[in-house]
């Protein structure tokens, strides 16, 4: 059986079109308060490029390709790991309990999530 993926012109355009639309809709309703974590989160998501780097490096057959492939994996891994670490840190700060009750009792508003180091 052949499980190799073959993507030709029109299929690619369909994928791109649907993905672009999905991205637009997913982010569409986001409140401004989350703009930074969201940007950092989407920054993390394009860290998937590390997988492409792995493909390039594992298929490298010259020293030149090995060197460039090595950097592709190195940079992609940095993008993914770093993006995850900072997004997680930021989002951890938004954990606040008793959100609804606080409008009436501002003095109770001091409960907040774990602070980052």
């Amino acid at each position: 059986m052949d499980f190799a993926i073959h993507i030709t012109g029109f299929v690619a355009i369909y994928i791109f079109m649907l993905a672009a639309f999905a991205g637009w809709v997913i982010i569409g309703g986001v409140p401004a308060i989350l703009h930074t974590p969201l940007m950092s989160g989407s920054n993390f998501v394009h860290g998937i490029v590390v997988v492409g780097g792995m493909f390039a490096l594992l298929n490298a057959s010259t020293v030149e390709e090995q060197v460039i492939g090595f950097f592709a994996v190195l940079l992609g891994a940095g993008n993914a790991a770093g993006g995850f670490a900072v997004t997680r840190r930021m989002l951890a700060m938004f954990q606040i309990s008793g959100h609804a009750a606080k409008h009436q009792h501002p003095s109770h508003a001091k409960v907040h999530g774990p602070k980052a180091v």
């Binding site: 672009a20 969201l38 998937i48 490029v49």
Partner: peptide, 28 residues
Amino acid sequence: AVGLEGFVLENPALMIAGMVVGAAGTLL
């Protein structure tokens, strides 16, 4: 860029993730 390289490598995960981020970033 990630989405386009995903097309070259015939890797739909790269295409989708890249394009979702591309669209989201454009909106932002």
